[in-house]
Design a protein around this nucleic acid. Structure first.
Lengths: 222, 222
DNA sequence: AATGTTACGAACTAGATAGTTAATTAACGT
DNA sequence: ACGTTAATTAACTATCTAGTTCGTAACATT
């Protein structure tokens, strides 16, 4: 006659505890960096104890890797939902750039984790079997858009998919990752709402302009 | 009859010791991040002792701030030497972009420091009186190039100097700062020699293409 | 040469920090 | 109802780490 235990009512719930540790840990690692984050601090910020971190993850490093794996996996999920192939090449690449912009805008904690991981020369990513083999479907998508654009004559620049991806990512990533030093030096918070729409348009226009071939010195823009 | 003390022979040399501490500290902070760097480690890597760090800099944080101040100041010195105003607008902005690329390519340790400082929300930069008021002459330079380009009709896009600076910086900075995660995920080291020239050309072409207005949807490229 | 000042070194300390031990309790299958 | 196992807690420890104490040696000044 007792009601079946609902997740939120249960006093012991491995999944819940594990998930909460990951959530809090992600926030702390993103805020303080890997070395700066404190296992005790993470423990205090949740309802369970430090022992649970070691029970489920074994070490600070393995917890950090688990955080990275979760964050990257979620981001890949979002990427899979991008659908721009019904658009003409120019609009397809412009829209992809703008969606990438939105995506970076919405996942700032993830960006911090990536920045932190780069400071550590990606040593943790390389230790993760999950992440080491995580190719990205975005590259294929860009490749197809580039092919279509070249075939249609819209794109004059012979571009490489990885390069184009880097160009789009760099703009979107930098705006968020370097907001603080940039803000301190130039007195402008690039992530403030009043700059958002303009910079969003800018990425799209930049990729399109580049691919159309307007930047090359030999061949003047058509 | 005793020979005058030469810098290298002297057993005590405040300037030298101070400089060596800064050098080693910069390397260590760039390698391990602020929290990850160890004062003892820095001390072991030089000929003097940990006591000297506290003698000259007072605390780990003040040492770190001193490292930032030195690094930023040196970079500003290099920026002052950029001279592209004798060129026509298109070539001026292209050259500026390419020089910025070279600059980032040559100062990777500085880039790491900036990335680290962003993880700490630029709190140390803000504590430094030297850095807080360090405007940049590059912005004025870009502003003048943009004005000239608009006046001559070469640039159709009404761009903002800070935005253009951000676009150039983001590409150059990201290539270096994110080389490790990017390499791990896409299997390409963007900082490898074989990609250098191509990507260098790419920044220049991208800014020029954008400023010519080739990316806008309303107005087709001229 | 005497004296004061600046630069330096070895050893030490208090507190922080990752990781552990071992006992305890809730859930679940039978 | 009951034994088994998975989940959880509190208290503990070894080590590390930023910062200090105190004494000394080199240089400058007179």
């Amino acid at each position: 006659m007792t009601s079946p235990p609902v997740a939120s009512e249960r006093q012991r719930d491995a999944d819940r505890t594990r998930a909460e540790i990951l959530e809090v840990a992600q926030r702390e690692f993103a805020r303080r960096g890997y070395a700066g984050a404190r296992v005790d601090e993470i423990a205090e910020l949740m309802r369970t104890t430090k022992r649970m971190i070691y029970y489920y993850f074994g070490s600070k490093e393995r917890l950090y890797i688990a955080v990275l794996e979760k964050a990257y996996t979620e981001v890949r999920e979002a990427e899979r939902l991008v659908d721009v192939e019904h658009l003409a090449p120019v609009e397809a690449i412009r829209t992809l750039a703008e969606l990438t912009f939105d995506h970076h805008d919405a996942h700032r904690e993830f960006i911090k984790l990536v920045a932190i991981e780069n400071i550590h020369r990606a040593e943790h990513i390389r230790k993760s079997e999950v992440l080491a083999n995580l190719g990205t479907p975005v590259l294929d998508l860009i490749g197809r858009i580039l092919d279509a654009g070249t075939a249609s004559g819209d794109f004059a620049t012979e571009a490489d998919a990885i390069d184009v991806h880097m160009m789009i990512s760099s703009f979107c990533f930098f705006r968020v990752s370097n907001q603080h030093t940039f803000g301190a030096l130039f007195g402008r918070d690039m992530t403030a709402p009043e700059h958002r729409a303009r910079l969003r348009r800018m990425v799209g226009e930049t990729v399109v302009a580049y691919l159309r071939g307007a930047g090359s010195p030999e061949r003047p823009p058509r």
